[in-house]
Design a protein around this nucleic acid. Structure first.
Length: 619
RNA sequence: GCCGAUGUAGCUCAGAGGUAGAGCACUCGAUUCGUAAUCGAGCGGUCGUGAGUUCAAAUCUCAUCAUCGGCUCCA
């Protein structure tokens, strides 16, 4: 377990070593948080942008405009939305302002003074911002024409900004204070750098990220599709994509067998009463597909079936089907269970956010004495799974409830016990982590493993949850050593989280180049001419019989084209077959990773494939 | 769900009130070729869907569906 004690320091996938299909220009792009100069540049640029917007669009109110790691944004309350054309005009105006070399002047004022000046401007959002500010209250002026509340820092003059290192990137809607019940503002995202070269590199990396995007690669590699007739957020897996799924499932199933998990299988729908008992119906209804009722009367009295949004209540029924003894515990019920959640339409995207997905779910029923040990074992399993998948860029989050919210079920005592159990585990492991208040499941706190996609969006994959609440709601018991019935504790856990989301992240992490054990097509045979086809098919049959996923390129293309196609399809191993190979009854191997390897016998190829698969490595 | 953008052949895209194009893919023919694209021909689209405006709509308007970027929500 030692090797997992320190989680790899988080790095963006874009900067990861294997991230590039093309050599990087080796221009270092610091994050804003790493560079005082970028903080100044981006603060000032965003002020210049806001000044330009207010000049071009009178009546527009300025709200907040912080830097973000790769740039900045500013939120405006504008009577009409901004368009792409507007961005160009705004940029032009910004250049004018910059060229006037306006000094950036810091001024410290009293709260009353700030309030008075804001009232003169008639900008109510600023008043709200002011109310939350601590002393000292500072204003930053651009010349004597424009100012905003800001803590700084700023450059000393707009002359320090390079218009060629600035770009306005996109417009978007955003709610005031991030609250969907409040006004929707217009947000403009932009970026600013010290040099035009840095901006060019930033844009190059964004384009590279697009090439690795799992939605693009999934289509190019033929891994999954979506169909308008099937519906949004419901991926269909092709034969190639299904290889990925089954390899991952088989891998985890083997790991679970080694750790004493028991497989179960449960239906996709259930009576709504099951979810009333669990509390899902009360707390989660708007995220569930609507009730299936036979008639209006049933619908009105909430009788009928629903698609399952989670697997736990089903596993609980299996646990409950017999009186369990303390000797039976811990009982670890596991299933690749496909669940259906009615996500809001605007949330859907690729494989990372879908409406039907498969959870590598397991529920562990444990005695209070077993809780800590079982929890650690689960974390160990999760970390070893990530290790095998070469996933290093993740953060561990303690997802606790927001005490101010009423969206949770269960007693304060139960929640405290569960949260403490997670804290104990993380401390015992010495694991780096951060706390996410309000990130808990409605029935219990979680330890979540957060990854980033190619566009730097964060996604939860693996999760472990400690749950005192569902055992209570379903009245779970086991017969204790002393002959008294006791209540078990549940651990919910999923190393992958969602098979779909995991595969989305993996596609991007590998840039579509899968390790041999996952590659849908492991080896492709390329004949020089048609005369070599019979030998190719014989070899293919032998390799297939040995368990290798092999295909013969059947096209009439020339060798160069066949190689090009195999490279584009990111096939890890290819073999050229011509007169020499037929004569020598062997294969001439070329790998994607290492190029030509020379002539190898069929038997040796099989052994090398098996060896590579066994240690999750390359051919 | 909200704000904005986009939707043209299997894929990537061009066209922009006068009735649809390219490259790749696919099919056929010729070529039988040794490590990233052989040549030629052919097939293929009621321009997301439905209304409306117009003599005429892929093009303008509205609605709707889907996708994309954000926001909100979440595995």
């Amino acid at each position: 377990m030692d090797k997992f004690i320190h989680l790899a320091e988080y790095r963006s996938p874009m900067s990861a070593a294997q991230s590039s299909d093309q050599p990087s220009q080796n221009i270092y792009l610091p994050k804003t948080s790493e560079s005082e100069q970028l903080k100044k540049i981006r603060h000032t640029t965003s002020h210049v942008m806001a000044m330009a917007v207010q000049k071009l669009f009178p009546g527009t109110q300025v709200t907040i405009g912080p830097w973000i790691e790769s740039g900045f944004y500013y939120d405006f309350d504008s009577p009409t939305p901004f368009t792409e054309q507007d961005l160009k005009a705004i940029k032009k105006e910004m250049v004018k302002i910059i060229k006037r070399k306006l000094p950036v002047i810091r001024e410290e004022v009293s709260r009353a003074e700030a309030q008075q000046r804001i009232e003169a401007l008639q900008e109510p959002y600023k008043l709200e911002i002011l109310a939350d500010l601590k002393e000292p209250i500072t204003l930053y002026h651009l010349g004597d024409e424009w100012w905003d509340l800001c803590a700084g820092p700023h450059v000393e003059s707009t002359a320090e900004l390079n218009p060629k290192a600035i770009e306005l990137e996109s417009v978007a809607g955003a709610y005031w204070r991030g609250d969907e019940t409040k006004a929707q503002l217009q947000r403009i995202y932009g970026t600013a750098w010290e040099t035009p070269e840095q901006l060019a590199e930033h844009k190059r990396r964004k384009e590279e990220a697009l090439r690795r995007d799992h939605r693009k690669l999934g289509k190019e590699l033929g891994l999954f599709i979506f169909s308008d007739l099937v519906g949004p957020g419901l991926p269909l897996w092709t034969p190639k994509g299904t290889v990925l799924r089954s390899q991952l499932e088989d891998f985890l199933k083997q790991e679970q067998i080694k750790r004493g998990y028991l497989g179960v299988t449960t239906p996709h729908i259930a009576r709504v009463d099951l979810f009333k008992t669990s509390g899902h119906w009360q707390k989660y209804q708007e995220d569930m597909f609507p009730l299936m009722s036979e008639n209006d009367a049933d619908r009105n009295s909430e009788q009928g079936f629903v698609m399952k949004p989670m697997n736990c209540p089903f596993h609980i029924q299996i646990y409950k089907s017999e009186l369990r003894s303390y000797r039976d515990l811990p009982m670890r019920l596991a299933e690749f269970g496909t669940v259906y959640r009615y996500e809001q339409s605007g949330e859907l995207g690729g494989l990372t956010r879908v409406r039907g997905f498969t959870v590598d779910d397991s529920h562990l029923f444990v005695t209070p004495d077993q809780l800590d040990d079982e929890f650690l074992k689960v974390v160990d399993l999760i970390l070893s799974v990530f290790d095998k998948l070469q996933l290093q860029n993740f953060k561990a989050r303690l997802s606790f409830r927001d005490p101010a919210s009423d969206k949770y079920i269960g007693s304060d005592t139960a929640w405290e016990k569960a949260e403490n159990a997670i804290r104990r585990a993380v401390e015992a492991l010495g694991m780096e982590h951060f706390e996410g208040i309000g990130e808990a499941a409605f029935y219990g706190p979680k330890l979540d493993f957060i990854f980033q996609d190619v566009l730097d969006r964060e996604w939860q994959l693996g999760t472990v949850q400690v749950d005192y609440n569902l055992p209570e709601r379903f009245d779970l018991e086991f017969m204790g050593e002393d002959g008294n019935r006791q209540r078990p504790i549940m651990i919910h856990r999923a190393p992958f989280g969602s098979l779909e989301r995991l595969i989305g992240i993996l596609i991007e992490q590998y840039a579509g180049v899968f390790p041999l054990w996952l590659a849908p097509e492991q080896l492709r045979l390329l004949t020089v001419g048609d005369d070599h086809m019979p030998f190719a098919h014989k070899v293919a049959a032998d390799l297939q019989a040995a368990g290798v996923r092999v295909m013969v390129d059947q096209s009439g293309d020339r060798l160069g084209k066949k190689i090009r196609n195999a490279e584009k399809a990111k096939i890890p191993v290819m073999s050229v077959i011509g007169d020499q190979e037929v004569e020598a009854n062997s294969l001439n191997i070329r790998t994607r990773a290492a190029g030509e390897l020379g002539v190898i016998s069929v038997t040796e190829v099989v052994e090398r494939v098996k060896g590579a698969i066994a240690n999750y490595g390359d051919f």
